[in-house]
């Protein structure tokens, strides 16, 4: 057996191996650590009463933490491989979809965990709606601008949603400003998430060359 063969070893489970390599190349482990950091930050913010009520200011703080989590999901879409990866088979869209879903679930889940047994402005349900919606915006930005700049989408949307919170906008498109029971807001967030994941899965983040 050659040295290379030894290095490769015998791996029977190709699927998990591929998923692991794909997630590693997207720096998903680092992303998960940062999502855990977001959860800790949320916990600290709740503990220190940075969000004492359901007011606009409290929800703005929560929204910013949600934005950080969504940015991690969006930026993780960036691929280091470029065209050599794009010229491969149909497993890639599935992997992209899985990575997006996994990270979004991790983002929403970690924040929900961070807020466990505490009162979250707007309610924990709102958190589960807002994070995937923001992640969807980030993934759309990744498809349009490239993975590296994908964070600008959630950030710009957050600024808009902050204004919507302060000004009491009623449109469901600024879903973080709507109460958790607003069905329209749920639909809009779901649509943004579906569009983002579908775009990134099918097309991948925009190839921006060396700067991508």
């Amino acid at each position: 057996m050659t040295g290379t063969a030894l290095a490769v070893g015998r791996r029977r489970h190709a699927g998990p191996r591929l998923v692991r390599l794909h997630l590693t190349s997207r720096q998903v482990p680092g992303g998960l650590a940062l999502l855990a950091g977001c959860a800790v930050l949320l916990r600290v913010a709740l503990h220190l009463h940075w969000m004492p009520d359901d007011g606009a200011a409290a929800r703005q703080t929560l929204l910013l933490i949600e934005c950080a989590a969504a940015s991690v999901v969006a930026v993780a879409a960036r691929t280091p491989f470029g065209e050599s990866e794009r010229a491969t088979g149909p497993r890639l869209p599935v992997l992209r979809l899985a990575a997006s879903l996994l990270l979004t679930a991790a983002a929403a889940g970690s924040l929900a965990l961070g807020a466990a047994a505490a009162r979250v402005p707007g309610g924990a349900l709102g958190l589960l709606r807002d994070v995937p919606g923001l992640a969807g915006i980030g993934l759309i930005a990744a498809a349009a601008l490239g993975g590296a700049l994908a964070w600008t989408g959630p950030l710009a949307y957050t600024v808009l949603a902050e204004l919507a919170l302060m000004d009491g906008w009623r449109t469901p498109w600024t879903w973080p400003a709507r109460p958790a029971h607003d069905a329209g807001a749920w639909w809009c967030a779901a649509l943004a998430f579906a569009a983002g994941t579908a775009l990134v899965a099918a097309r991948g983040p925009r190839d921006t060359g060396g700067d991508g």
Binding site: G30, L34, L64, V72
Partner: peptide
């Protein structure tokens, strides 16, 4: 120079400014 630096720096800045408001 991580891919996560820019978004997290931006959000952290917004959070810090928001907290000084409180």
């Amino acid at each position: 120079p991580s891919r996560f630096t820019a978004p997290l720096a931006a959000v952290a800045t917004a959070l810090v400014l928001r907290q000084t408001l409180r």
